[in-house]
């Protein structure tokens, strides 16, 4: 549009374009914020009136599930922000990492941790390189990697899980003071993730590449390295989730990460990160994770089945996407 609203020059009146409901954009934005707040309030009220929600057991179980989804979701945030929508193989990466971790526990816990992190970062980093350097379609690449991971892992394990005899990994199930280690690890992940985004050159580059790849290229920002980096960070945080989960179940298994891509994607979207990249934060993802987890916990307490949980999450994600599109329509 050649007459874009220019309310930045003094003297020019504020103009807004018509939306499909005929509301000016600024009003529409307010309306959407209102809808968001009301949905949030509705969720809180629903949670509070759910019998058994405000009990120690229920809250504890919430706090134990949030970290596993949360770490993957924070990782996913980097992929989304870098303009590559999302990766469908973080769940599989998580599973495969639990296997690598458990299989290498015999060489010692420290060595196993290093190997697990290395494996995960390499798997996602390779994806990032494909996407960033060759501009391959991120969705297709992630689906190809998904198949590759399943293929390789089942080739080596014969489709069975790995159950080491020792108890070395139990230390990861412990607590630091009153805080369970998974929760502590998640808090560190959130702080580190947000720090990377806000206070490092890499983080700002992620935003720029995600906002406009060609402009980033033209501005001399190392675009493919930034994207590869974003994927590697995703792998790093996925590995955090993986070692914690392996320790929790004392096993490495391709089943562990099942559905985690979807949960992570839901958290990123529900938190309000722009699906197209360039706008968002780890804090938003944290919010999304909490919302999704409360919703799931609540449905569990109401006695709904897993299918019902999927259905509800689907409806919520769908609603958020609709709402987002309304905000963008001009």
């Amino acid at each position: 549009m050649s007459t874009s609203p220019d309310h930045l020059n003094a003297g020019t009146p504020i103009r807004a374009s018509d939306g499909f409901i005929g509301l000016p954009r600024s009003w529409r934005k307010r309306a959407i914020i209102l809808v968001r707040l009301m949905s949030g309030a509705a969720l809180v009220v629903a949670a509070l009136v759910t019998p058994g929600f405000l009990t120690a057991t229920s809250i504890l179980s919430l706090l134990t599930t949030i970290p596993f989804i949360g770490c993957v979701a924070v990782g996913m945030t980097f992929i989304t922000l870098s303009g590559n929508v999302m990766s469908f193989c973080l769940g599989a990466t998580l599973s495969a990492t639990t296997i690598v971790f458990m299989a290498s526990v015999p060489i010692g816990l420290a060595g196993a941790l290093v190997l697990a992190f290395l494996f995960s970062v390499l798997v996602t980093g390779a994806q990032g390189w494909m996407v960033g350097y060759f501009r391959a379609n991120p969705i297709i690449v992630s689906m190809a990697v998904l198949a590759l991971i399943y293929g390789f892992v089942t080739l080596f394990t014969g489709g069975r899980g790995i159950y080491p005899a020792g108890t070395e990994t139990d230390i990861l199930k412990g607590r630091i003071g009153w805080v369970p280690i998974p929760l502590a690890a998640f808090m560190v992940t959130v702080v580190l993730g947000q720090f990377l985004l806000s206070y490092t050159r890499f983080g700002r580059n992620v935003f720029m590449v995600g906002s406009n790849y060609r402009a980033a290229l033209a501005a001399g920002i190392p675009a493919w390295r930034t994207i590869t980096g974003a994927y590697m960070v995703a792998g790093l945080f996925t590995a955090v989730s993986a070692v914690l989960m392996a320790a929790r179940y004392a096993s490495g298994d391709m089943e562990h990460g099942l559905g985690y891509d979807y949960h992570a994607i839901s958290a990123v979207v529900v938190g309000g990160n722009a699906i197209g990249g360039g706008q968002g934060s780890v804090v938003r993802t944290l919010l999304g994770t909490v919302i999704i987890s409360i919703l799931r916990g609540m449905l569990l307490l109401w006695g709904f089945s897993t299918q019902m949980q999927y259905l509800t999450t689907g409806i919520v994600v769908f609603g958020v996407i609709m709402l987002h599109s309304l905000g963008e329509t001009r």
Partner: peptide, 9 residues
């Protein structure tokens, strides 16, 4: 729009 500025930043 395509190559110059970062519109959403």
């Amino acid at each position: 729009a395509e190559e110059g500025i970062f519109r959403h930043l």
